[in-house]
């Protein structure tokens, strides 16, 4: 999406955040992360960590992340790839005895880490997320064909061809069952008011940045 911060802006944002919050990472999270004000309500029961389908793959489980936030372990949290393991299954949310919106907080932490440029550079879900966002905000609707191709070719042309070949059977099956259309590559479907759609998103980001002290 045009208008997004570049790497330099990111580093700058991070510097400014460090200066503003010093050791108080909890306050930083409360003010800048979606639903971050819930973090302090965790009582370390661990039910979320035990409920996560991808639990074994998290370096730091959600309650640990909450505790690390309170303990001021800012860098370890924001550079972690743990939050990117969330499958949005909401198991943790419905079991949390304190009703923390854990899924949203994890997404929020990922958003914030990405925004500051601290998110891990090689993280497939992060890549997917960025690609997906760009994919659907371009026309207002997700374009599965283009999404696949972007994903396959994200590591270069050769890797993409290889990946495409390996997925050939599946691709043919999808075409055969009419669940994929090659025509989608050529623009594909989308909303009519793309301009309004994109303007609205820009505005939303601007408001949110203002509220969170992230703008300029």
């Amino acid at each position: 999406m045009p208008g997004d911060a570049g790497m330099g802006d990111m580093a700058d944002l991070n510097e400014r955040a460090l200066a503003k919050y010093r050791n108080d990472f909890l306050r930083e999270v409360e003010e800048r992360v979606d639903e971050g004000h819930w973090v302090k309500m965790c009582m370390q029961c661990g039910v979320c960590a035990g409920s996560c389908p991808f639990g074994p793959h998290w370096e730091h489980s959600p309650p640990k992340i909450f505790l690390m936030i309170r303990a001021g372990k800012r860098e370890a949290v924001l550079t972690s790839d743990s939050m990117w393991m969330c499958t949005s299954c909401y198991n943790c949310v419905v079991r949390c005895p304190r009703k923390l919106p854990i899924t949203t907080i994890m997404h929020g932490l990922a958003t914030y880490a990405q925004r500051l440029g601290l998110a891990p550079k090689v993280q497939p879900t992060r890549d997917f997320s960025i690609i997906f966002w760009e994919n659907f905000t371009r026309t207002g609707r997700a374009n599965e064909m283009r999404l696949m191709l972007r994903l396959w070719f994200k590591e270069g042309f050769a890797a993409g061809v290889k990946k495409a070949l390996s997925m050939r059977d599946l691709g043919l099956a999808m075409l055969r069952t009419k669940r994929m259309s090659p025509l989608e590559i050529l623009g594909g479907h989308g909303v009519k008011d793309v301009k309004g759609f994109q303007a609205m998103i820009r505005k939303a980001k601007e408001i949110e940045d203002r509220r969170r002290g992230l703008s300029g």
Binding site: L26, K40, M41, M43, Q44, L67, R70, A71, R98
Partner: peptide, 24 residues
Amino acid sequence: DLRVPGNGEDFYRSGQSKGVVFSK
């Protein structure tokens, strides 16, 4: 062990919501 039996649990929550940090 944080020992606030009965409705003490509400007081604990209130402490947390005011930003009191609890560490085991």
